[in-house]
């Protein structure tokens, strides 16, 4: 077992896990942050997307021990207290989900993408969001929501 100290949603956290525990399972089972979802456990659906120092990564394809000392943001850390992140509100307004299971991953991925600042057009947004599958077919709502927020999102 290994002690890991890292920052999760702005809070210092320590967990004791076996080396073979994925970051995803550490978040869900050890820190009880179940907002991050397991959809395939093999990097093929994007449901487990979290931010590691503002970069979107797949928490299923990395080990918790490899994130010692790093800063992780999960869906639980996106809103500012009760105040939703503009993208969260845009997802609600555009009905950008149905079952809601891929939603945490879509949101973390979209926030990571806006931070990257590489997507200019709708086509580029779609391409750069294609690592996040939505089986309900809420694709149009998701991209509409992102495009709306992208307009107001200044490159910081």
């Amino acid at each position: 077992m290994t002690n890991i100290s890292f920052t999760v949603n702005g809070q210092p956290r320590t967990v004791t896990v076996a080396p073979w525990v994925s970051l995803l399972d550490a978040l869900r089972e050890h820190l009880h942050l179940t907002g991050t979802k397991k959809g395939c456990d093999h990097g093929q659906c994007g449901a487990c997307t979290v931010l590691c120092e503002d970069k979107r990564i797949l928490s299923c394809l990395t080990l918790a021990v490899m994130k010692n000392g790093r800063s992780i943001t999960t869906i639980e850390g996106i809103a500012d207290g009760e105040k939703l992140h503009p993208l969260q509100q845009a997802f609600i307004d555009h009905d950008a989900f149905q079952c809601g299971y891929c939603t945490p991953g879509q949101l973390c991925s979209a926030i990571g993408m806006l931070h990257e600042g590489k997507a200019r057009t709708r086509e580029e947004v779609k391409e750069l969001m294609s690592g996040n599958l939505c089986r309900c077919g809420a694709n149009v709502g998701i991209i509409d929501a992102i495009m709306q927020v992208k307009e107001t999102y200044s490159h910081e």
């Binding site: 942050l33 179940t34 907002g35 991050t36 999960t74 869906i75 639980e76 996106i78 809103a79 939703l84 969260q88 509100q89 997802f91 609600i92 307004d93 009905d95 989900f97 809601g100 939603t103 945490p104 949101l107």
Partner: peptide, 14 residues
């Protein structure tokens, strides 16, 4: 809008 929307976008939907 979906009544459970906030739970779904904040990861609190279980």
């Amino acid at each position: 809008s979906r009544i459970e929307g906030k739970q779904k976008v904040t990861g609190t939907a279980r």
